[in-house]
């Protein structure tokens, strides 16, 4: 714990599952942001596990209203604070899961980016609608079995690749976009800090494994986030001032591990054959080439 973080901004006693990646992300992010922060949160795991009345895990002011509008509510707060003569030292953050960012919350997010509100949006990505019971989302990767993209005789599970949310966000020409994981804590802190310090909208897309939805051992959450990066499944980068053609890869694995190491630890991929895994490997190789490694 660094000196300034003598008080945890994300209190214990939340009802997240054992080993939840979001718990790690939230502690790191809120401790980095500090007490002078106002947050909005979308409906989802984070909200239901932390705000059951009359308890709250939030040590900062928080408003939850609906699923698709964390960024719009934050827009209202940001403008109101500016209008009402506040000095602009308060961080405004919006939090949403992948459903609340990639899918239902995307319009609100795009609007917030376009209007250039000084808001940092955090997307906690566990690659499916976990709060409602592991349904497929546009964040769900190819081959994952979910309750609405189940693997079966005629189905490989999810049959579409993951939507490139962070790159789409960067295409809004906003000051800061980054990807991060719960395994790379220093990197996550640095990126959150940069996002908060940016003069305008920012997005930090945080990869946060979910033992319940991915069906992996609860002690594997950090390891899986690390493996996602080491295998090239998830690429750590940042783009400043809309420099989407010149992404800064913030962590390049020295030698990429085979994707099977990552997939085989998760039962959502248990149905995949060696052939499938080869196909996924090929796609990752192509993607990594695009990213320049």
């Amino acid at each position: 714990m660094s000196e300034k973080e003598d008080k945890e901004m994300f209190a214990s006693g939340h009802r997240m599952c054992a080993g939840c990646g979001e718990g790690i992300a939230m502690r790191t992010i809120l401790n980095e942001a500090g007490p002078n922060t106002i947050a909005t949160v979308a409906t989802g795991c984070l909200e239901v596990t932390t705000t059951a009345y009359p308890q709250t895990s939030w040590e900062i002011p928080l408003i939850h209203s609906a699923f698709e509008n964390a960024a719009s509510v934050a827009s209202g707060i940001e403008v109101a604070l500016k209008q009402m003569d506040k000095k602009g030292e308060t961080n405004i953050m919006s939090f949403a899961g992948d459903g609340g960012t990639f899918d239902i919350g995307f319009q609100a997010l795009s609007g917030m980016f376009e209007r250039k509100h000084n808001v940092t949006h955090i997307c906690l990505d566990n690659e499916a609608y976990m709060n409602t019971g592991i349904q497929r989302c546009s964040s769900t990767p190819y081959g994952a079995s979910t309750t609405t993209s189940p693997a079966g005789k005629f189905s490989i599970g999810e049959d579409r690749p993951k939507k490139p949310l962070a790159r789409i966000s960067a295409a809004h020409d906003i000051p800061y976009v980054a990807t991060a994981t719960i395994a790379h804590i220093k990197d996550l802190k640095k990126k959150v800090r940069k996002a908060l310090d940016a003069d305008g909208p920012a997005l930090v897309h945080v990869f946060a494994p979910c033992p319940t939805g991915w069906r992996h051992a609860s002690n594997d959450s950090v390891e899986l986030a690390r493996l996602a990066v080491e295998t090239g499944v998830f690429v750590l980068w940042e783009a400043e001032d809309g420099e989407i053609c010149d992404l800064n890869i913030t962590h390049k694995p020295k030698e990429r591990k085979p994707v099977g190491e990552y997939l085989k630890k998760q039962r959502r991929f248990a149905h995949l054959t060696e052939e499938h895994i080869e196909k996924i490997q090929k796609e990752i190789d192509e993607k990594c080439e695009q990213y320049g490694f």
Binding site: S72, V73, G76, M84, A108, G111
Partner: peptide, 17 residues
């Protein structure tokens, strides 16, 4: 804003402070 849904959402955010 980019929609009425966001209009009311932003109203809620602004009013909450």
């Amino acid at each position: 804003v980019e929609s009425e849904h966001s209009a009311m959402s932003a109203c809620i955010g602004a009013s909450s402070i």
